[in-house]
Simulated scan of single mutants.
Amino acid sequence: ARVSLDLLRTRTSRREETRAEILPEAVERDGEGASPEYEAEMADAVGPALLVVLDTLAPAERLAFVLHDLFGVPFDEIAVILGRSSDAARQLASRARRRVRGASPTGEPDLERQREVVNAFLRASRGGDFEALLTVLDPDVVVRADATAVKIGAAPEVRGATAVLNTFLGRAVGAQPAIINGVAGAAWAPHGRVRAVLNFTVVDGKVTAIDLVADRERLDQLDVELLPREGE
């Protein structure tokens, strides 16, 4: 099922620009046909942020979603590939579509406000400040890690402010603020080489999602501007 991500990465690499900061709000679809608006939004979705979300899907969900929604493969053909019925393939794609939509908040448009929230998060995390860290986290915040990050010890997904707080409290010592594809985030970049990034989604002054990206291919697709740590 990893072929679906390989296909998507190939498609991504051929685009002149990627828009990783925000996933599009998915459009509800009852049939197999895609509206022009849906196709346009999904075309804009092909970027590192979408790849992060796809990496969290079950293999069958990911394959059904990518082949149908992004490449237009009919469900009867997807069913043969998956060894399931057409209805089952349709349900898998629908479930994946809901998860992609759920991971696609509008986000905070003000870069300076984003930076304030991210800096507050990093400061509280490094200092082990429980209350300060809890203040910047949305109650339903979710952290997702890509496959490479999982291999080196990260949890695939952490949900809820308390769980995320326990994951980051007293950590992020080596992280520094960064602008990632025009959005405030953080990066681990020893000797100036980016090894991993945290993509933050900030809504109404709260962190609602963090995507941990460590895959080298994805990192090379990102425009990362490293910023000095506070006090430097």
Rank of each mutant, 00 (worst) to 15 (best):
A26R: 12
A209W: 03
S4I: 01
T208L: 08
A172L: 15
P59T: 08
G153K: 04
A60V: 11
V53M: 09
R171Q: 08
N181H: 08
N199L: 15
V158Y: 13
R229E: 13
F130G: 03
V207H: 08
I22L: 07
T18F: 01
G33T: 15
D30T: 15
G127H: 04
P36N: 10
A40D: 10
E25D: 14
V158K: 07
S35Y: 07
R101I: 04
A163M: 04
E16A: 15
V3H: 11
E157W: 05
R123Y: 02
R11G: 09
K151L: 13
V207E: 06
A214Q: 12
L222D: 05
P156R: 10
V158F: 08
V224Q: 04
P228W: 06
L134S: 07
E116T: 13
T167S: 12
F71W: 00
V46A: 01
A187H: 02
E230A: 13
E116P: 05
L7W: 13
G205C: 01
W188M: 15
V197R: 01
A214I: 07
A40P: 03
K151N: 10
A34Q: 14
L169N: 00
V66L: 04
P74G: 10
P36S: 07
R84N: 14
F121P: 07
N181C: 11
P109C: 09
A103D: 05
P74H: 06
A96T: 00
L7Q: 08
F130A: 03
P190L: 06
L227Y: 07
E25L: 11
S125R: 00
I22N: 10
L5I: 13
I152T: 12
T106P: 00
E157G: 09
L212F: 05
A124S: 06
E17Y: 10
R99F: 09
T135K: 13
V164F: 00
E61V: 04
N119V: 10
L63S: 11
V46G: 04
G72I: 02
E225Q: 14
R84V: 15
R14M: 13
G192M: 08
D44S: 12
I78T: 09
G72N: 05
F130I: 11
V164G: 04
T208V: 15
G182E: 06
V158D: 04
T208A: 13
L227K: 13
V202N: 06
E41V: 03
P228G: 00
L111S: 00
L219G: 03
V3E: 08
L5H: 03
F130N: 09
P105L: 12
E112K: 12
G231V: 07
R101K: 13
E77L: 10
V117A: 01
S94M: 14
Q221F: 03
R9T: 14
G72S: 06
